[in-house]
């Protein structure tokens, strides 16, 4: 398969993630969409790494995964504490800086 098909697929997945972040109001689903976008980037990394014939792109995928894991841990902790505080995780209702 040519590189460009992988990149097109990656672009489409990324776009789906962006639309999800824009459309959905549930914080958890917004979070999942961010994961989706990170994954789309991973796909592009691996595809380009394949086409250049070296493993650097795959090493970058690890860094992305590490950041994603850290982000999920923190983000879910924030979601849980926001929910305990306000009984909602709708991002439109959680709009004040004060607790």
């Amino acid at each position: 398969m040519e590189l460009k098909y992988y990149l097109i697929l990656s672009a489409l997945l990324f776009t789906t993630g962006v639309i999800g972040v824009l459309v959905r109001r549930n914080a958890i689903i917004i979070f999942m969409c961010i994961e989706l976008m990170l994954n789309a980037a991973n796909l592009a990394f691996v595809a380009i790494s394949r086409s250049l014939g070296e493993a650097t792109g795959q090493v970058f995928v690890f860094f992305v995964m590490t950041v994603a894991a850290a982000e999920v841990a923190i983000g879910l902790a924030i979601i849980v504490s926001v929910f305990k505080h306000r009984e909602t995780i709708n991002v439109d209702e959680v709009n004040s800086l004060k607790g």
Binding site: L3, T15, V18, S51
Partner: peptide, 28 residues
Amino acid sequence: LGILLAIEGIYIATNVLNNTAIASAQPA
């Protein structure tokens, strides 16, 4: 907006990358 972004992405993937080093290296 999302569809516009997708078109942009596809354009980059098909046209712009052809002029870069990635496209010229094609051991695939």
